[in-house]
Design a protein around this nucleic acid. Structure first.
Length: 351
DNA sequence: CAGCCGTGGAA
DNA sequence: TTTCCAAGGCT
């Protein structure tokens, strides 16, 4: 399994890594400054927020979220709309829906206490293999193999893995499990991820200061070329039309996006057509008339496509939907795309 | 498995 | 401007 005497030996790797972490530990809002165990609730919230999201982005969201709902009981009592409002701009909005659902489940089915078994976390919506392992080790200091994007990169480089991602995931998990020790599981998991994010970076890794340099197979060659990834498919461009409809009092027509799934699930948005997977025809449905296009187009990039949004001023007299005064827009959970549009149509009102 | 699901920062 | 990808999970 290991590459002879030059390959990574797990006890050496973990001890070197733990001592590196002891003097390079970053202060983060969800991390106890003294290294004491952190409230599992805080670990859980932070791990959900950190899914595919960077530390600088999460920081502010985490602080606001925790001060508003300091415990899982508080979160369970909150309304989903309030949770989504606190989540607006963070993206992947199903995370907020699942978070709220989990809080209710934990209070009702788990009697308000976090379970200490990884399989219990895995049964929760929005908690997958990474997050379950992270909570297990970080919050309960119990050994578990934590593999995120950082760990994938570190492992791929340590062993110069030729198998491309995502095919290599199983192999990486196996190697990560062999490398890790069962000492200080909480510190070890965070140390490996910190190393990946600050030293063993995707571009221009700082091998000179890396504590694992002497164990690393890729260091001699081209560390930046690992992990090898499958070619990504080209991102298509879609065009959509968004109707900015005001009544005679200046109120804007918003509609709630279906909670069942899709883009911006559960958030408020302008009526639109032509860009998402629905076949909605708002012009007919809302009896839209007097359509006047806005010359500027709004560009927005999603994970799997780019959007060119055309905005059209229009009128409607229907009673359905939610008519909102511009000053009251901040009371609603709005995706970033809507904020971009309102910056053009309501420049005085939007931050 | 591959497509879906947001956004922003870095280079 | 473009490209990458970040403490992933669900279907």
């Amino acid at each position: 399994m290991f590459h002879g005497d030059d390959g990574p030996s797990h006890n050496k790797v973990s001890s070197v890594l733990l001592s590196w972490y002891a003097s390079n530990k970053r202060v983060l809002p969800w991390r106890d400054p003294q290294g004491l165990p952190t409230d599992p609730y805080r670990v859980w919230i932070s791990e959900i927020m950190l899914q595919q999201t960077t530390v600088p982005t999460v920081r502010g969201y985490f602080e606001r979220f925790i001060s508003r709902w300091p415990s899982v009981q508080d979160l369970a009592k909150a309304s989903l709309d309030d949770v989504l409002h606190e989540w607006q701009g963070l993206g992947y909005y199903s995370r907020a829906k699942n978070l709220h659902k989990c809080a209710v489940m934990i209070v009702e089915a788990f009697d308000g206490t976090f379970q200490t078994a990884e399989k219990d976390f895995l049964s929760l919506p929005g908690v997958g293999p990474y997050t379950a392992a992270a909570i297990q080790s970080i919050a309960f200091n119990s050994p578990s193999t934590v593999v995120d994007g950082n760990v994938e990169r570190v492992i791929a480089r340590l062993f110069s893995l030729k198998t491309p991602l995502p095919q290599a995931k199983a192999e990486i998990h196996k190697l990560a499990g062999h490398i890790r020790s069962e000492e200080e599981p909480s510190n070890y998991a965070q140390a490996l991820m910190d190393l990946g994010s600050s030293v063993c970076t995707p571009k221009a890794p700082k091998c000179v200061i890396c504590p694992l340099e002497k164990f690393c197979s890729a260091k001699k060659h081209n560390p930046e070329s690992f992990p090898i990834r499958q070619k990504k498919k080209e991102k298509p461009t879609r065009r959509g039309i968004f109707y900015f409809i005001q009544d005679d009092k200046g109120r804007v027509l918003l509609e709630k996006r279906p909670l069942s799934g899709g883009l911006f699930s559960g958030l408020m948005a302008l009526p639109s057509e032509g860009w998402d997977t629905t076949d909605d025809d708002p012009v007919t449905r809302l009896k839209i008339k007097n359509i006047k296009p806005l010359p500027e187009k709004v560009r927005h990039v999603f994970t799997h496509f780019s959007l060119i949004a055309e905005v059209r001023y229009a009128e409607s007299t229907i009673a359905e939907g939610v008519w909102v005064f511009p000053e009251a827009l901040s009371n609603y959970a709005l995706p970033t795309l809507m904020k971009k549009i309102f910056k053009l149509t309501l420049p005085e009102t939007v931050e």
